[in-house]
Structures are given as C-alpha cells and as structure tokens.
Amino acid sequence: MSKDWPLWEVFIRSKHGLSHKHVGSIHATDAEMAMNNARDVYTRRNEGASIWVVPSVQIVSSAPGDKGMLFDPSEDKVYRHPTFYDVPSDVENM
C-alpha cells in the first residue's frame, strides 16, 4: 500500500463573486488538514474568499469516450443561441 496520504481536490472562490474553481490538489490525512494545506498552498496571494476540499476518490467524472454521447446532441441546436434569430437592426435594446 502507498504511504501517501489521501488526495483531495481543492476549489477556491475568489473575491469577485465567481463560482468555486478547481485549482489543484493536495495530500492530507483528514478534512481539517486538507483545509489548512489548501489554504497554505493555494491562497498565498489573497486569491480566496472560500475554499472547498473534496476527497479525490469522491469525484465522479465523465469518461473521454462518452464525449460524443454527452455533448454532441447540443451541437445541432443552433436555435438555443441568440444569433439564430433575425431581428432588424433598427430595433434597439435587444
């Protein structure tokens, strides 16, 4: 068995009101240490207003092979985009 401590993924929300964003990972034996390590490693420049740490094994991610099945269906739905619609240029504020 590896002597490595469990791996945690780190997400930081910046001050600018954006969502938490994945920034990297760290090793820690428990959630409290994961939080402390994430703070030391990923917020040395005032980057953070909030931190999430998640055990890496708990993350479920899509497989590269499923890309077609998952994302192709949205490709031919141009009518979901505003540029699909013709609005005369003299109609304002739209």
């Binding site: 760290i26 030391d40 490693v41």
Partner: peptide, 10 residues
C-alpha cells in the same frame, strides 16, 4: 515549496 506542490500534483 508551493510551486513544487503544484507540480507534484500535476
């Protein structure tokens, strides 16, 4: 130290 850790995790 931080840079080393970013890279190990990569």
């Amino acid at each position: 130290a931080g840079h080393g850790l970013y890279l190990y995790s990569a």
